[in-house]
Design a protein around this nucleic acid. Structure first.
Length: 568
RNA sequence: CGGGGCGUAGCGCAGUUUGGCUAGCGCGCCUGCCUUGGGAGCAGGAGGCCGGAGGUUCAAAUCCUCUCGCCCCGACCA
C-alpha cells in the first residue's frame, strides 16, 4: 500500500472529545471516526486491527471446538419476554417497532437467540457438547458512552455459547474457554488477568472477568501479591476484622446532640471519635421495600453484594421522604436502634462495642450502642466493599488494588435460558433435561483499545506485531532523490513478495512529517532509506517499541525484516 | 436522570459580557517557488446558513424563547 493512497487521515491536534490515550490516538492516527455518541466508523487502519484481533479469536475458538455462526441484530421481543429480560434490561436496550407495530430490539447480547436457534435441533445427548460463537455488532444504549471504543453503544463482540449435558461438561467448556482467553489476550500483546466477578443481569453463579490493568480502567480490581487471588471489587470477599468485643465493657447508651452533623466525617470531628467506632446506617429500597444496611464508619457498602443477599431485582438508596418516614428524621440521622424495618449488618458491625450511630431523631446521635443489647440485626453478612490492605480471603496477605479494563468475561449460566425457553435434550435414560449453558464474551474493539492503553508513548501507538495494521513502513527521506526512491521501491516490492504487510511512504513530504506519521500510526518496523546509510549500501531499521536502530545492508533487508516479524 | 460545560472553516480556538460595516487566528487543504534525517520558508488561493427554528431590533455569531447535538462529573452498567 502506498501512503499517498492510504485513507488514514492523521490529525496533528487532538480532537476535543478525546481524553484517553487509546481514544486520542485512534482518532489522530486515522483508525476511527465518531458518528454519534458511542458510535464509530472504522477506517482502513482501524479495521485491519479489528480483523487481526478477530482472526486470533477465531483461531483460538476453533481450537476448543467452537463453530462460528452469524445471528440477527434485530431480534423479536417475544424471546426476550420469555426470559423476562425484555423488562430486566431496562433503558439499556435499543428498542424499535416495525410497521405492523411489532416490537423488536437491537441485540445487546444473544443468549435468547442462540437458545432459540438450537432448541428445536438439539434433541439428544449424543449431539453434546456444542460450542457456537459469533462475532458481530451488539447494541447497548449506555447511560454514558465514553472513552471511544472502550464504552460504546454499538460495539463488536465475540460471544461463544456452550451447551452441555451436565455440570461436568459445563465445567470443561468453561475452563477450555478460560484458557483460550488467556491465549487470545497474550497473543494480542496484552497483560490481562482473570479475576473473580459478579455475574450481574446475565445470570449464573461462577464467572471470571479478564482485566487489563490500566489507569484508565473503569473497574476496581483487588488482588493478592502473594497468591493467585484476584477479584472485581463488586465480588471481592471482605475478610474478618479485628473484634473490639474483648476490649471494652458495654457502657450505658447515651443520646447526644449533634446539630447538623450528617456525615461520618462530621460526626468523628464533632464527637472526637474514630470512624471505626461509628455505624453507618443506610436506608435502601429493595424492590420498593425499605431495608436498613449497616456498615462500619470507615467501610463502604457494596451494593452488588447487598442486592445479591436480598435477592431483589431493583436496589436503590431510599429517597429523603422514605428516609424521613422510616427513621422519623431527616437524612443523616438514621440508626439501627428502634428501627422498624429489616436490618442487614455487615460482619464487622457485629464486632463493634460502644458504637456511635444516628438516633433516628433530627440533630441527635447515640453513643455506646451495642449489638444484641440495643438492637438486633435480621441478617449478618459480608456487605461491605473490600479495600486495599484487607486480608486476602485465600491466604491472608494484604490485598492491593488496581484499575482494570474488562476485555472479556466467562460465565457459567446453568439452565436459566434453556429452562425459560424450553431447550431440552434426552439423556441416556430417555429422560428430558434442560441444556446446561455457558457464555463467553470478548469486546473486540475494547481489546484493541486496551492494547493501545498498554502500548503507547507520547508520539503514538506502539502496536504489537500480532495486531499491527501493517508490519513495516518504508520511508525514503526524499522521494526526489532517485537512488533513495529506487531503493525504497525495490525494498517495498521485495517485502510484498515475502508476504510482509508493508506501506511505502511515497509522499513528497519532508522527513519529519513522515516520521511523525509513522510513529503515530505505530508501524512496528520502520525502514528509513536515507543518504547517510545508503552511501554505505545500507538502510536503517527502527523498531517502534524500543527505538532500537540497526544498519542493514540493502540486499539482506528482506530476510532481516521477515526474521523480526516471525519472532513477533 | 441530576450537576457543570461546549456547538463559529477539516482540526484546535478567538470574537458573545457591552448588538454595528466585508466574521478572525493557528494548523491542515489547493497553486507556484524553494526545501528534504523529526510536523521548514516565501507568495498567492479556496473553504463558514456562526448547530437548528422562532422572536426582539434600523441592524443579531452576540439579546430572548424553544429545540437538537456533543463533552465532563455523578448515579448506572454483559
Amino acid at each position: 500500500m502506498l501512503m499517498s493512497q492510504l485513507y488514514a487521515p492523521t490529525l496533528r491536534e487532538t480532537p476535543a472529545e478525546a481524553e484517553l490515550a487509546s481514544h486520542r490516538f485512534m482518532l489522530r492516527a486515522g483508525l476511527i471516526r465518531r458518528s454519534a455518541a458511542g458510535v464509530y466508523s472504522f477506517l482502513p487502519l482501524g479495521l485491519r486491527v479489528i480483523r487481526k484481533v478477530e482472526a486470533i479469536i477465531r483461531e483460538e475458538m476453533s481450537k476448543i471446538g467452537g463453530q462460528e455462526v452469524l445471528m440477527p441484530i434485530v431480534q423479536p421481543a417475544e424471546l426476550w419476554h420469555a426470559t423476562g429480560r425484555w423488562n430486566d434490561y431496562g433503558d439499556e436496550m435499543f428498542r424499535l417497532v416495525d410497521r405492523h407495530n411489532r416490537q423488536f430490539c437491537l441485540g445487546p447480547t444473544h443468549e435468547e437467540l442462540i437458545t432459540d436457534l438450537i432448541r428445536s435441533e438439539v434433541r439428544s445427548y449424543r449431539q453434546l457438547p456444542l460450542r457456537l460463537y459469533q462475532i458481530q455488532n451488539k447494541y447497548r444504549d449506555e447511560i454514558r458512552p465514553r472513552f471511544g471504543l472502550i464504552r460504546g453503544r454499538e460495539f463488536i463482540m465475540k460471544d461463544m455459547y456452550s451447551f452441555d449435558r451436565d455440570e461436568q461438561g459445563l465445567d470443561e467448556s468453561y475452563w477450555a474457554c478460560y484458557h483460550a482467553y488467556e491465549r487470545i489476550f497474550a497473543r494480542c500483546g496484552l497483560d490481562a488477568r482473570p479475576v473473580e466477578a459478579d455475574s450481574g443481569a446475565i445470570g449464573g453463579d461462577v464467572t471470571h472477568e479478564f482485566m487489563v490493568l490500566a489507569d484508565a480502567g473503569e473497574d476496581l480490581v483487588l488482588y493478592c501479591t502473594s497468591c493467585e487471588y484476584a477479584a472485581n471489587v463488586e465480588r471481592a470477599e471482605a475478610g474478618p476484622v479485628a473484634s473490639a468485643k474483648a476490649a471494652g465493657e458495654q457502657l450505658p447508651m447515651e443520646e447526644v446532640a449533634t446539630p447538623g452533623t450528617t456525615t461520618i466525617q462530621e460526626i468523628t470531628a464533632f464527637l472526637g471519635v474514630e470512624a471505626t467506632q461509628c455505624i453507618k446506617t443506610m436506608i435502601y429500597l429493595a424492590d420498593g421495600e425499605p431495608v436498613a444496611a449497616l456498615v462500619r464508619g470507615d467501610h463502604e457498602l457494596n451494593e452488588v453484594k447487598l442486592q445479591r443477599l436480598l435477592g431483589c431485582s431493583q436496589l436503590e438508596l431510599a429517597d429523603p421522604e422514605t428516609i424521613a418516614q422510616v427513621t422519623n428524621a431527616p437524612v443523616g440521622f438514621a440508626g439501627p436502634v428502634g428501627l422498624a424495618v429489616p436490618i442487614v449488618a455487615d460482619h464487622a458491625v457485629l464486632e463493634m462495642v460502644n458504637a456511635v450511630t444516628g438516633a433516628n431523631k433530627a440533630d441527635y446521635h447515640v453513643k455506646n450502642v451495642n449489638v444484641g443489647r440495643d438492637f438486633n440485626a435480621d441478617k449478618a453478612a459480608d456487605i461491605r466493599a473490600a479495600q486495599p490492605g484487607d486480608p486476602c480471603p485465600t491466604c491472608g496477605a494484604p490485598l492491593t488494588s488496581a484499575w482494570g479494563i474488562e476485555v472479556g468475561q466467562v460465565f457459567k449460566l446453568g439452565t436459566k435460558y434453556s429452562a425459560a425457553l424450553k431447550a431440552t435434550f434426552l439423556d441416556e435414560n430417555g429422560k428430558e433435561q434442560p441444556l446446561i449453558m455457558g457464555c463467553y464474551g470478548i469486546g473486540v474493539g475494547r481489546t484493541a483499545a486496551a492494547v493501545i492503553e498498554q502500548n503507547h508513548d507520547e508520539h503514538g501507538i506502539c502496536w504489537p506485531m500480532s495486531i499491527a495494521p501493517y508490519h513495516v513502513i518504508v520511508v525514503p527521506v526524499s522521494v526526489k532523490d532517485e537512488q533513495q526512491w529506487e531503493t525504497a521501491q525495490a525494498i517495498y516490492k521485495a517485502l510484498q513478495d515475502a508476504q510482509v504487510e508493508v506501506v511505502l511512504d511515497d509522499r513528497d513530504e519532508r522527513p519529519g512529517v513522515k516520521f511523525k506519521d509513522a510513529d503515530l500510526i505505530g508501524f512496528p518496523i520502520r525502514i528509513t532509506v536515507g543518504p547517510k546509510s545508503l552511501s554505505q549500501g545500507n538502510v536503517e531499521v527502527t523498531l517502534r517499541k524500543t527505538g532500537d536502530r540497526t544498519e542493514v545492508p540493502v540486499h539482506q533487508i528482506t530476510e532481516y525484516v521477515v526474521n523480526i516479524i516471525s519472532k513477533g
